Amino acid sequence: MTTPSDAGDTPRFQIYRAADASDYRETSCMEVTGLTDVITDGITRAEAAGASEGNVVKLLFAMPGMSLTYAWFKSGFPLPLHSHNADCLYYIVAGTLRLGTEELGAGDGFFVGRDVPYNYKPGPDGVEVLEFRTADTFDIRFLGKTTAFWDKTVSALEAERPKWAAQRPPHELATAR
C-alpha cells in the first residue's frame, strides 16, 4: 500500500488489499488540530470511556492528493462534531446511520466539503463506510468547545460500550441473515 510517508510519484496502477490496511493509530495521515484544554481533556475522557472500542478505522490506500479509508462505527457510537481540511465523499457499505434528519443505508452516501462541521450516529447494527478524500494527509478538528459537550459524549460512550464487545460488522450480519 502507498502511504503518505512513502508516496513519491503518483502510481499509474496499484492494487491494495484490505488485509494490508493500517490502523489509523499506526499512520500519520490524520493530525488532530485546534486543540484547547477543554477539547484535550474531553478526548482523554472519551478514550478512558471506551472510544477506541467503538470504532475501527483503517487506511486502505493513499497517494498524493487522494486517500481511501474504511471505518466501522459500532452501534450508537457518539461521533463528535468535527471537520477536516479536505473534501470527503462517504459511501455506506453496510448498516445505517443518521445524518441530521436523514437515515442512510447501504449504497447511500454523502459529501462533506473541507472545513464543514459534521457528525452522524450509527444505527442499531452500526455502520461501515468508505471515505474517499481529496488528500493523503489531512486534519481532524473537534468542535466540542465546552465541558458539557464532552460530558454528553462520555456519557453516551459509557452507555453504549457494554454492547460493543460482541458486535460484528454490519456486512457480516447481512450475510448471516
Rank of each mutant, 00 (worst) to 15 (best):
V56Y: 00
T101D: 15
A62R: 01
F61T: 02
T175I: 15
R161M: 04
Y90H: 08
R141K: 14
G34N: 09
S52W: 12
G50L: 12
A21C: 07
I92W: 06
P122G: 02
C88R: 11
A159K: 13
E47V: 15
R177V: 04
G109D: 05
W72Y: 15
F149P: 00
G109P: 03
V129P: 01
L130H: 07
D9P: 13
L99G: 00
D139K: 03
L97F: 07
L173T: 06
G76P: 07
G95T: 14
E158R: 15
S5Y: 11
T137C: 06
T137Y: 05
V38G: 01
G34Q: 11
F77C: 08
D6H: 09
D108T: 01
G123L: 12
F13C: 05
Y90M: 07
P122R: 05
F110H: 06
T101L: 10
T101I: 09
T2G: 01
A86L: 01
G100R: 08
F149N: 04
A174V: 12
D20H: 15
F13G: 06
A48Y: 09
R98F: 01
A49K: 09
F149M: 04
G65A: 11
S22K: 12
A7K: 07
H171Q: 06
T33E: 12
V112A: 02
D9L: 14
F142D: 04
L68I: 14
T36G: 05
G144Q: 11
V127S: 04
E172R: 08
E131V: 15
H82L: 00
T40W: 10
V116G: 00
D125Q: 14
